[in-house]
Protein backbone atom coordinates (compact mmCIF):
# COMPACT_ATOMS: atom_id res chain seq x y z
CA UNK A 1 0.00 0.00 0.00
CA UNK A 2 2.85 2.35 0.78
CA UNK A 3 4.12 2.13 -2.79
CA UNK A 4 0.66 3.07 -4.02
CA UNK A 5 0.68 5.96 -1.57
CA UNK A 6 3.97 7.28 -2.96
CA UNK A 7 2.64 7.01 -6.50
CA UNK A 8 -0.52 8.90 -5.55
CA UNK A 9 1.56 11.53 -3.82
CA UNK A 10 3.74 12.01 -6.92
CA UNK A 11 0.70 12.24 -9.15
CA UNK A 12 -0.81 14.77 -6.77
CA UNK A 13 2.32 16.95 -6.97
CA UNK A 14 2.20 16.83 -10.77
CA UNK A 15 -1.48 17.76 -10.60
CA UNK A 16 -0.66 20.78 -8.44
CA UNK A 17 1.99 21.89 -10.95
CA UNK A 18 -0.57 21.47 -13.72
CA UNK A 19 -3.12 23.55 -11.82
CA UNK A 20 -0.59 26.32 -11.20
CA UNK A 21 0.50 26.36 -14.86
CA UNK A 22 -3.08 26.28 -16.04
CA UNK A 23 -3.95 29.28 -13.85
CA UNK A 24 -0.88 31.32 -14.75
CA UNK A 25 -0.63 30.74 -18.50
CA UNK A 26 -2.89 32.55 -20.89
CA UNK A 27 -3.07 35.27 -23.50
CA UNK A 28 -2.80 37.88 -20.74
CA UNK A 29 0.22 37.49 -18.47
CA UNK A 30 -0.61 38.02 -14.83
CA UNK A 31 2.01 37.99 -12.00
CA UNK A 32 1.80 34.90 -9.84
CA UNK A 33 1.30 36.83 -6.57
CA UNK A 34 -1.74 38.50 -8.04
CA UNK A 35 -3.15 35.13 -9.11
CA UNK A 36 -2.79 33.82 -5.55
CA UNK A 37 -4.27 37.01 -4.10
CA UNK A 38 -7.22 36.81 -6.43
CA UNK A 39 -7.81 33.13 -5.62
CA UNK A 40 -7.89 33.84 -1.90
CA UNK A 41 -10.33 36.68 -2.39
CA UNK A 42 -7.88 39.49 -1.69
CA UNK A 43 -8.27 42.60 -3.79
CA UNK A 44 -5.74 43.25 -6.51
CA UNK A 45 -5.06 46.51 -8.31
CA UNK A 46 -6.05 45.38 -11.75
CA UNK A 47 -9.72 44.40 -11.64
CA UNK A 48 -9.55 42.97 -15.19
CA UNK A 49 -7.00 40.42 -13.97
CA UNK A 50 -9.28 39.54 -11.11
CA UNK A 51 -12.15 39.01 -13.55
CA UNK A 52 -10.04 36.86 -15.86
CA UNK A 53 -8.90 34.60 -13.05
CA UNK A 54 -12.17 34.21 -11.18
CA UNK A 55 -14.50 34.00 -14.14
CA UNK A 56 -12.34 32.51 -16.84
CA UNK A 57 -9.20 30.66 -15.75
CA UNK A 58 -10.43 29.12 -12.50
CA UNK A 59 -13.64 27.61 -13.92
CA UNK A 60 -11.64 26.37 -16.90
CA UNK A 61 -9.06 24.68 -14.67
CA UNK A 62 -11.78 23.02 -12.63
CA UNK A 63 -13.56 21.94 -15.82
CA UNK A 64 -10.36 20.37 -17.14
CA UNK A 65 -9.90 18.42 -13.90
CA UNK A 66 -13.50 17.21 -13.79
CA UNK A 67 -13.68 16.27 -17.47
CA UNK A 68 -10.24 14.65 -17.64
CA UNK A 69 -10.85 12.51 -14.57
CA UNK A 70 -14.45 11.73 -15.51
CA UNK A 71 -13.53 10.51 -18.99
CA UNK A 72 -10.57 8.52 -17.67
CA UNK A 73 -12.72 6.79 -15.05
CA UNK A 74 -15.38 5.95 -17.61
CA UNK A 75 -12.61 4.48 -19.78
CA UNK A 76 -11.40 2.32 -16.90
CA UNK A 77 -14.92 1.11 -16.14
CA UNK A 78 -15.51 0.17 -19.78
CA UNK A 79 -12.18 -1.62 -20.10
CA UNK A 80 -12.98 -3.79 -17.11
CA UNK A 81 -16.63 -4.32 -18.01
CA UNK A 82 -15.79 -5.44 -21.56
CA UNK A 83 -12.54 -7.12 -20.42
CA UNK A 84 -11.10 -5.32 -23.41
CA UNK A 85 -8.06 -3.03 -23.28
CA UNK A 86 -9.21 -0.89 -26.19
CA UNK A 87 -12.56 0.07 -24.77
CA UNK A 88 -13.19 3.73 -24.03
CA UNK A 89 -16.00 6.26 -24.29
CA UNK A 90 -14.78 7.75 -27.58
CA UNK A 91 -13.63 4.58 -29.33
CA UNK A 92 -16.81 2.68 -28.62
CA UNK A 93 -19.00 5.50 -29.83
CA UNK A 94 -20.30 6.86 -26.53
CA UNK A 95 -19.20 10.36 -27.48
CA UNK A 96 -20.88 9.93 -30.86
CA UNK A 97 -24.02 8.89 -29.03
CA UNK A 98 -23.78 11.99 -26.88
CA UNK A 99 -23.29 14.10 -30.03
CA UNK A 100 -26.38 12.55 -31.54
CA UNK A 101 -28.36 13.37 -28.43
CA UNK A 102 -27.20 16.97 -28.54
CA UNK A 103 -27.82 17.19 -32.29
CA UNK A 104 -31.39 16.00 -31.77
CA UNK A 105 -31.82 18.59 -29.02
CA UNK A 106 -30.34 21.57 -30.86
CA UNK A 107 -31.52 20.83 -34.38
CA UNK A 108 -34.72 19.04 -33.58
CA UNK A 109 -35.63 21.62 -30.98
CA UNK A 110 -37.91 23.65 -33.24
CA UNK A 111 -40.22 20.65 -33.54
CA UNK A 112 -40.52 20.20 -29.80
CA UNK A 113 -40.22 23.73 -28.49
CA UNK A 114 -43.96 24.00 -28.16
CA UNK A 115 -44.02 21.32 -25.50
CA UNK A 116 -40.96 22.08 -23.46
CA UNK A 117 -40.27 25.75 -24.06
CA UNK A 118 -37.40 27.18 -22.03
CA UNK A 119 -36.18 23.83 -20.65
CA UNK A 120 -34.91 22.73 -24.04
CA UNK A 121 -32.16 25.28 -24.13
CA UNK A 122 -30.93 24.87 -20.59
CA UNK A 123 -27.64 23.11 -19.90
CA UNK A 124 -29.52 20.40 -18.02
CA UNK A 125 -31.35 19.53 -21.23
CA UNK A 126 -28.06 19.24 -23.10
CA UNK A 127 -26.60 17.03 -20.38
CA UNK A 128 -29.70 14.85 -20.29
CA UNK A 129 -29.75 14.38 -24.03
CA UNK A 130 -26.00 13.73 -24.20
CA UNK A 131 -26.14 11.21 -21.35
CA UNK A 132 -29.21 9.61 -22.91
CA UNK A 133 -27.42 9.35 -26.25
CA UNK A 134 -24.37 7.73 -24.73
CA UNK A 135 -26.56 5.38 -22.68
CA UNK A 136 -28.31 4.16 -25.82
CA UNK A 137 -25.00 3.56 -27.59
CA UNK A 138 -23.53 1.87 -24.52
CA UNK A 139 -26.48 -0.52 -24.33
CA UNK A 140 -26.24 -1.28 -28.05
CA UNK A 141 -22.50 -1.92 -27.89
CA UNK A 142 -22.92 -4.02 -24.76
CA UNK A 143 -25.55 -6.23 -26.35
CA UNK A 144 -23.24 -6.91 -29.30
CA UNK A 145 -20.23 -7.34 -27.03
CA UNK A 146 -22.05 -10.20 -25.32
CA UNK A 147 -21.82 -12.09 -28.59
CA UNK A 148 -18.34 -11.05 -29.72
CA UNK A 149 -15.43 -11.21 -27.31
CA UNK A 150 -12.91 -10.17 -29.92
CA UNK A 151 -11.17 -6.81 -29.44
CA UNK A 152 -11.10 -5.86 -33.10
CA UNK A 153 -14.74 -6.65 -33.74
CA UNK A 154 -15.77 -4.47 -30.84
CA UNK A 155 -13.66 -1.60 -32.17
CA UNK A 156 -15.19 -1.92 -35.61
CA UNK A 157 -18.65 -1.87 -34.06
CA UNK A 158 -17.68 1.35 -32.28
CA UNK A 159 -16.49 2.78 -35.60
CA UNK A 160 -19.77 1.81 -37.28
CA UNK A 161 -21.79 3.38 -34.49
CA UNK A 162 -19.77 6.57 -34.93
CA UNK A 163 -20.37 6.74 -38.66
CA UNK A 164 -24.05 5.88 -38.22
CA UNK A 165 -24.53 8.69 -35.75
CA UNK A 166 -22.63 11.16 -37.89
CA UNK A 167 -24.88 10.21 -40.82
CA UNK A 168 -27.97 10.91 -38.73
CA UNK A 169 -26.44 14.19 -37.61
CA UNK A 170 -25.91 15.11 -41.28
CA UNK A 171 -29.54 14.38 -42.05
CA UNK A 172 -30.61 16.53 -39.11
CA UNK A 173 -28.22 19.27 -40.22
CA UNK A 174 -29.70 19.23 -43.72
CA UNK A 175 -33.13 20.08 -42.39
CA UNK A 176 -32.14 22.62 -39.77
CA UNK A 177 -31.61 26.35 -39.87
CA UNK A 178 -28.18 27.92 -40.16
CA UNK A 179 -28.49 29.23 -36.60
CA UNK A 180 -29.04 25.83 -35.12
CA UNK A 181 -26.32 24.34 -37.28
CA UNK A 182 -23.82 26.91 -36.09
CA UNK A 183 -24.77 26.25 -32.48
CA UNK A 184 -24.16 22.55 -32.97
CA UNK A 185 -20.87 22.95 -34.81
CA UNK A 186 -19.42 25.22 -32.15
CA UNK A 187 -20.42 22.67 -29.52
CA UNK A 188 -18.82 19.83 -31.46
CA UNK A 189 -15.43 21.58 -31.66
CA UNK A 190 -15.12 21.07 -27.96
CA UNK A 191 -13.83 23.58 -25.48
CA UNK A 192 -13.01 23.63 -21.81
CA UNK A 193 -13.40 27.38 -21.53
CA UNK A 194 -16.61 29.38 -21.80
CA UNK A 195 -18.22 27.49 -18.95
CA UNK A 196 -20.07 29.63 -16.45
CA UNK A 197 -19.82 28.87 -12.75
CA UNK A 198 -23.33 27.48 -12.93
CA UNK A 199 -22.27 25.01 -15.61
CA UNK A 200 -19.19 24.03 -13.63
CA UNK A 201 -21.56 23.35 -10.74
CA UNK A 202 -23.76 21.11 -12.88
CA UNK A 203 -20.71 19.28 -14.18
CA UNK A 204 -19.38 18.65 -10.69
CA UNK A 205 -22.73 17.27 -9.54
CA UNK A 206 -22.72 14.81 -12.45
CA UNK A 207 -19.07 13.98 -11.78
CA UNK A 208 -19.85 13.30 -8.14
CA UNK A 209 -22.84 11.07 -8.93
CA UNK A 210 -20.98 9.10 -11.62
CA UNK A 211 -17.97 8.62 -9.41
CA UNK A 212 -20.10 7.51 -6.46
CA UNK A 213 -21.55 4.74 -8.61
CA UNK A 214 -18.03 3.76 -9.66
CA UNK A 215 -16.81 3.64 -6.06
CA UNK A 216 -19.83 1.55 -5.15
CA UNK A 217 -18.77 -0.98 -7.84
CA UNK A 218 -15.07 -1.13 -6.86
CA UNK A 219 -15.17 -4.54 -5.19
CA UNK A 220 -17.17 -6.10 -8.01
CA UNK A 221 -14.90 -4.51 -10.64
CA UNK A 222 -12.01 -6.40 -9.06
CA UNK A 223 -14.02 -9.62 -9.21
CA UNK A 224 -14.72 -8.96 -12.89
CA UNK A 225 -10.97 -9.12 -13.56
CA UNK A 226 -11.41 -12.89 -13.38
CA UNK A 227 -14.16 -12.87 -16.00
CA UNK A 228 -17.92 -12.93 -15.56
CA UNK A 229 -18.22 -16.64 -14.72
CA UNK A 230 -15.82 -16.40 -11.81
CA UNK A 231 -17.41 -13.15 -10.66
CA UNK A 232 -20.85 -14.75 -10.65
CA UNK A 233 -19.56 -17.78 -8.78
CA UNK A 234 -18.30 -15.48 -6.02
CA UNK A 235 -21.69 -13.89 -5.62
CA UNK A 236 -21.47 -10.84 -7.90
CA UNK A 237 -24.91 -9.96 -9.18
CA UNK A 238 -23.84 -9.49 -12.78
CA UNK A 239 -26.93 -7.72 -14.09
CA UNK A 240 -27.22 -5.22 -11.27
CA UNK A 241 -23.51 -4.57 -11.39
CA UNK A 242 -23.52 -4.10 -15.17
CA UNK A 243 -26.35 -1.57 -14.91
CA UNK A 244 -24.49 0.41 -12.24
CA UNK A 245 -21.34 0.51 -14.37
CA UNK A 246 -23.28 1.53 -17.48
CA UNK A 247 -25.11 4.31 -15.66
CA UNK A 248 -21.85 5.53 -14.17
CA UNK A 249 -20.00 5.63 -17.51
CA UNK A 250 -22.93 7.26 -19.27
CA UNK A 251 -23.22 10.02 -16.67
CA UNK A 252 -19.47 10.68 -16.58
CA UNK A 253 -18.90 10.56 -20.34
CA UNK A 254 -22.28 12.10 -21.18
CA UNK A 255 -21.94 15.15 -18.93
CA UNK A 256 -18.34 15.73 -20.00
CA UNK A 257 -19.31 15.55 -23.66
CA UNK A 258 -22.37 17.71 -23.16
CA UNK A 259 -20.43 20.62 -21.67
CA UNK A 260 -17.07 20.36 -23.40
CA UNK A 261 -17.90 18.63 -26.66
CA UNK A 262 -16.65 15.24 -27.80
CA UNK A 263 -13.09 14.78 -26.48
CA UNK A 264 -11.17 11.89 -27.95
CA UNK A 265 -8.86 9.26 -26.47
CA UNK A 266 -8.57 10.53 -22.87
CA UNK A 267 -10.79 7.71 -21.63
CA UNK A 268 -8.88 5.08 -23.55
CA UNK A 269 -5.32 6.28 -23.02
CA UNK A 270 -5.22 7.35 -19.37
CA UNK A 271 -5.89 3.92 -17.80
CA UNK A 272 -3.05 2.42 -19.85
CA UNK A 273 -0.63 5.25 -19.13
CA UNK A 274 -1.43 5.01 -15.42
CA UNK A 275 -0.94 1.24 -15.46
CA UNK A 276 2.61 1.88 -16.70
CA UNK A 277 3.24 3.86 -13.53
CA UNK A 278 1.09 1.89 -11.08
CA UNK A 279 1.46 -1.69 -12.28
CA UNK A 280 -1.65 -3.15 -10.71
CA UNK A 281 -5.19 -3.94 -11.71
CA UNK A 282 -6.62 -3.53 -8.23
CA UNK A 283 -9.34 -0.96 -8.83
CA UNK A 284 -9.10 0.37 -5.31
CA UNK A 285 -5.61 1.64 -6.17
CA UNK A 286 -6.25 2.26 -9.88
CA UNK A 287 -9.32 4.47 -9.45
CA UNK A 288 -7.63 7.29 -7.49
CA UNK A 289 -4.55 7.06 -9.73
CA UNK A 290 -6.71 7.33 -12.81
CA UNK A 291 -8.68 10.27 -11.43
CA UNK A 292 -5.37 12.08 -10.87
CA UNK A 293 -3.91 10.93 -14.20
CA UNK A 294 -6.97 12.01 -16.18
CA UNK A 295 -6.99 15.43 -14.54
CA UNK A 296 -3.26 15.90 -15.19
CA UNK A 297 -3.50 14.88 -18.85
CA UNK A 298 -6.45 17.16 -19.49
CA UNK A 299 -4.78 20.14 -17.81
CA UNK A 300 -1.64 19.75 -19.89
CA UNK A 301 -3.60 19.19 -23.11
CA UNK A 302 -5.46 22.39 -22.33
CA UNK A 303 -2.21 24.26 -21.68
CA UNK A 304 -0.90 23.07 -25.06
CA UNK A 305 -4.21 23.99 -26.72
CA UNK A 306 -3.83 27.58 -25.60
CA UNK A 307 -0.50 27.82 -27.41
CA UNK A 308 1.21 29.73 -24.59
CA UNK A 309 2.24 33.20 -25.63
CA UNK A 310 -0.26 33.41 -28.45
CA UNK A 311 -3.76 34.79 -28.73
CA UNK A 312 -5.38 31.82 -30.43
CA UNK A 313 -6.61 28.51 -29.00
CA UNK A 314 -6.69 25.12 -30.68
CA UNK A 315 -9.82 22.97 -30.34
CA UNK A 316 -9.16 20.70 -27.36
CA UNK A 317 -10.40 17.71 -29.34
CA UNK A 318 -7.54 18.14 -31.84
CA UNK A 319 -4.90 18.22 -29.10
CA UNK A 320 -6.14 15.07 -27.35
CA UNK A 321 -6.34 13.27 -30.71
CA UNK A 322 -2.79 14.25 -31.66
CA UNK A 323 -1.72 12.85 -28.35
CA UNK A 324 -4.11 9.91 -28.11
CA UNK A 325 -3.99 8.35 -31.57
CA UNK A 326 -0.29 7.38 -31.26
CA UNK A 327 -1.08 5.81 -27.87
CA UNK A 328 -3.70 3.58 -29.51
CA UNK A 329 -1.26 2.60 -32.27
CA UNK A 330 1.38 1.84 -29.66
CA UNK A 331 -1.12 -0.32 -27.78
CA UNK A 332 -2.05 -2.23 -30.93
CA UNK A 333 1.60 -2.82 -31.82
CA UNK A 334 2.31 -4.47 -28.49
CA UNK A 335 -0.96 -6.36 -28.60
CA UNK A 336 0.57 -9.54 -27.29
CA UNK A 337 1.03 -7.80 -23.97
CA UNK A 338 -2.56 -6.62 -23.90
CA UNK A 339 -3.71 -9.52 -21.77
CA UNK A 340 -4.40 -6.95 -19.09
Amino acid sequence: MSKAFINHFLLFIVLLVGIILSLSLGSVSIPFQDILKSLFGLSIENSTWDYIIVNYRLPKTITAILIGSGLAVSGLLMQTLFRNPLAGPYVLGLSSGASLGVAFLIMGASLLSGFFGEFLFSKWAIILSASGGSLVVMLAVLSTAQRVKDTMTLLIIGLMVASLTSAIVSVLAYFSSSNELQLYIFWSFGSLGNLSWQEVGILSICWFIGLSFAIFCLKNLNALLLGENYAKSMGVQLKKNRILIIVSTSILAGSATALAGPIAFVGLAVPHLVRQLVPTNDHRILLPSIILGGAILMLFCDIIAQLPGSESTLPINAVTSIFGAPVVIWLLLRKRKLNF
Binding site: K149, L225, L226, G227, N281, N339
Partner: peptide
Protein backbone atom coordinates in the same frame (compact mmCIF):
# COMPACT_ATOMS: atom_id res chain seq x y z
CA UNK B 1 -12.45 -22.84 -14.88
CA UNK B 2 -10.41 -22.94 -18.08
CA UNK B 3 -10.29 -20.37 -20.86
CA UNK B 4 -11.73 -17.54 -18.79
CA UNK B 5 -10.45 -14.02 -19.54
CA UNK B 6 -8.61 -13.87 -16.22
CA UNK B 7 -6.37 -10.84 -15.85
CA UNK B 8 -2.74 -11.78 -15.47
CA UNK B 9 -1.72 -8.29 -14.44
CA UNK B 10 -2.40 -9.20 -10.84
CA UNK B 11 0.08 -10.53 -8.33
Amino acid sequence: LTNEPVSRQLT
